[in-house]
Simulated scan of single mutants.
Amino acid sequence: MGLPTRTHWPKGDRVIQIVSLSFFRFAPGLSRLWAFTMMGLARPALARVPGIGFWKLCGSGTGEGFTPKPNTGVYAILATWPDLATAQRQTAEAPIFRRYARRAIECYTLFMQTTSVRGAWSGVAPFDPAEAPGAGPVAALTRATIKPLVALRFWRHVPDISTVIGADPNVAFKIGIGEVPLLHQVTFSVWPDTAGMAAFARHDGPHARAIRAVRDGNWFREELYARFNIIADRGTWQGAKPLQHLGVGA
């Protein structure tokens, strides 16, 4: 479990919290076995990284991640940091991040500032909103603990949502990750601006119907919804820089 910390600074000269989300892709064979075992073994090393706050180790689903079937080739580390310099330095130089990078065939990290958040993750409020949505690309993260008795009903909605997200010309990057298969789900997507993201959320399609079903059925034991400004990125994903056309990492 990530550390349940949330740092506050005095108003006026506060340092803005940075959220990093690092993705690692592993080749078939021993590297994937190593990555799977690190879901448990990496926790003490992550907890000791200087400057790290809340953190989570996540696996992913097959395809673009929006399925209950695990993808043994893609893993992610989400973390909070006191400032951008610390986030960029530690995700590149901390021993545990370097071990992941050496084993992976591809790495990609996003650096973000929280603009809004509601809900909890493992019983704590991990993100510290500091900025209004900017004019550039924005990210949306939803995280939920699904009640076991309704997990199958929830997952029946997900393939339709994934198809709609994938077909939306506005979405620049998307992936589904999670801490525990079937029960702990995180969806993450990047959009060129808040208007494009809001238009998708308002559309009366599979996404809206799934949200109504969740609300009507009280399917989640815990949920969190967060929005971010994208500050920077590093690395590539599927051989490209996903946000370069939006002016990030150009």
Results as ranks from 00 to 15, higher is better:
G2W: 02
L3A: 13
L3H: 08
P4V: 02
T5K: 01
T5D: 01
R6L: 14
T7L: 12
T7C: 02
W9H: 15
W9T: 12
Q17H: 06
I18N: 00
F23H: 11
P28E: 06
G29A: 07
S31Q: 15
L33M: 05
A35R: 07
A35P: 04
A35T: 08
F36T: 02
F36L: 03
G40S: 12
A42I: 10
A42Y: 09
A45D: 11
I52K: 05
G53K: 02
G53I: 05
W55S: 13
K56W: 00
G65T: 07
F66W: 14
P68N: 09
K69I: 14
K69Q: 14
G73T: 01
G73Q: 10
V74W: 00
Y75S: 04
L78N: 00
A79F: 00
W81V: 08
P82W: 07
D83E: 12
A85W: 06
A85F: 07
T91H: 08
E93D: 15
I96Q: 11
F97Y: 15
R98N: 10
R98T: 14
R103L: 13
E106P: 01
Y108K: 11
Q113V: 00
T114Q: 06
S116A: 15
S116R: 10
A120F: 13
W121E: 04
G123I: 08
P126N: 11
F127Y: 14
D128R: 08
P129F: 07
P129Q: 08
G136N: 11
P137S: 02
P137M: 01
L141H: 09
R143Q: 06
A144G: 12
T145Y: 09
I146L: 13
V150Q: 00
A151F: 08
W155K: 11
H157Y: 15
H157I: 05
V158P: 07
P159Y: 13
D160C: 12
D160L: 15
I161P: 02
I161D: 03
I161V: 15
I165S: 11
F173R: 06
I175D: 01
G176A: 10
G176Y: 10
G176F: 08
G178D: 03
G178V: 04
V180M: 05
H184W: 03
H184Y: 03
F188S: 02
V190R: 04
W191N: 07
D193P: 12
M197K: 05
A199L: 12
A201D: 12
H203L: 15
H203K: 14
D204T: 12
P206E: 06
A208L: 14
R212A: 15
G217T: 06
N218S: 12
W219K: 04
E222A: 13
E222S: 11
L224W: 02
R227P: 05
R227N: 12
N229T: 09
N229P: 06
G235W: 02
W237C: 03
Q238T: 06
A240G: 11
L243R: 00
Q244I: 06
G249Q: 00
G249A: 00
G249R: 01
G249P: 00
